[in-house]
């Protein structure tokens, strides 16, 4: 009973209500088109790329850090994979090299922050620019075709002709990271470091180690997103997933991951992502200009932050 009433007051409940309102509103406004299996699949399909960025950014933000470079470095990795494939490298090697490159960028981020004590915001912003520049240098103006069958299947294939493979992969990643954060020693350590790094270090947790692991993780997930995106378009371009960078962070924050670290979780981030994408999908269905969709996602984020703010004020 008491647990129940606590849930009713929680932010998660407010978010679920918001999601429900969005679903009901657009179902009515679109005369039923919104609430269909096909459209649900469209929504899920659209979140796959951003989902990977959300997971990486979410885990980092819970630990109290930020990575602004994943969009750009993921794009670079997609181009790298495409170039290796064009040059006849076998697909497993090309994919692994691309993922490793993402991890390498993450490791550099962690190095700049932990060893040289650069501010995370600035260090990763610089790395975003560096990797973006490398994308131009590697890729040039033209797009690079990706026609390897296996790689393309990862991006566009469907199991039994119905369920896209990449959706399964994205959901699985959300689930695995959710369990990791909630149930394992490593996950708990992330929350403790995010909540208070000095205290965490005095109970024997190594904040530096966690920072390295999470930055490398965020780089690898960014690379995976970049490669999947290229696979979907059957070509790699220098624009790639750069614009998804902020969508990933927005979803995590919308879902209750605190910017200062120490709280939030993968379920919330997933709900945040659903809200964001249901909203833009619904707006497309009722034929509102895409320009207003960007505006609306910003407004949604402000709304979620206002929820946080009123909650924090009550506590004081």
């Amino acid at each position: 009973m008491k647990e129940g009433s606590k849930f009713l007051k929680s932010k998660m409940f407010a978010l679920l209500v918001l999601l429900l309102l969005i679903v009901v509103f657009f179902t009515i406004a679109s005369k039923g088109t919104f609430f269909s299996l096909v459209n649900a699949r469209n929504i899920l399909n659209a979140i796959v790329i951003v989902a990977l960025l959300t997971v990486g950014a979410g885990a980092l933000m819970i630990s109290g850090q930020i990575d602004l470079s994943t969009g750009a470095s993921g794009t670079m990795c997609g181009i790298l994979m495409a170039i290796l494939l064009v040059n006849g490298w076998p697909w497993p090697v090309a994919v692994v090299v691309a993922l490793a490159a993402g991890g390498f960028v993450g490791a550099i981020n962690a190095l700049l922050i932990n060893e040289l004590h650069f501010q995370g915001f600035i260090a990763t912003m610089a790395m975003a620019s560096v990797t973006q520049g490398l994308s131009y240098a590697l890729g040039g103006a033209a797009s690079i075709p990706v026609d390897n069958k296996v790689v393309v299947y990862m991006g566009t294939g469907r199991i039994a002709d119905v369920v896209p493979v990449s959706i399964i992969a994205a959901l699985l990643i959300f689930f695995v990271y959710g369990i990791m954060l909630n149930k394992t020693k490593f996950g708990r350590s992330i929350y403790l470091v995010g909540g208070n790094p000095a205290a965490a270090s005095l109970v024997g947790i190594d904040p530096k180690r966690i920072s390295y692991i999470l930055f490398i993780n965020s780089g690898v997930l960014g690379s995976l997103a970049g490669c999947l995106f290229a696979a979907r378009l059957k070509s790699a371009t220098t624009t790639g997933i750069v614009s998804s960078q902020f969508a990933g962070m927005t979803a995590a924050i919308l879902g209750g991951v605190s910017f200062g670290g120490g709280s939030g979780g993968m379920f919330g981030a997933f709900v945040g992502l659903l809200i964001l994408n249901s909203f833009s999908n619904g707006m497309t269905l009722i034929k509102i200009s895409p320009y207003w969709q960007t505006f609306a996602s910003g407004a949604l984020l402000l709304f979620a932050l206002a929820l946080d703010f009123s909650g924090a004020k009550k506590k004081n």
């Binding site: 149930k183 020693k185 929350y191 403790l192 000095a198 205290a199 965490a200 005095l202």
Partner: peptide
């Protein structure tokens, strides 16, 4: 507050922080 506790986290999380290895079964806490 600055060095002892992770204020946002629960009493439980703060008490078991140094003994997480001893309160888990396999991979999971």
């Amino acid at each position: 507050k600055e060095q002892g506790l992770v204020l946002l986290r629960s009493i439980r999380d703060n008490i078991t922080a140094p003994v997480l290895d001893k309160v888990r079964k396999g991979l999971f806490l």
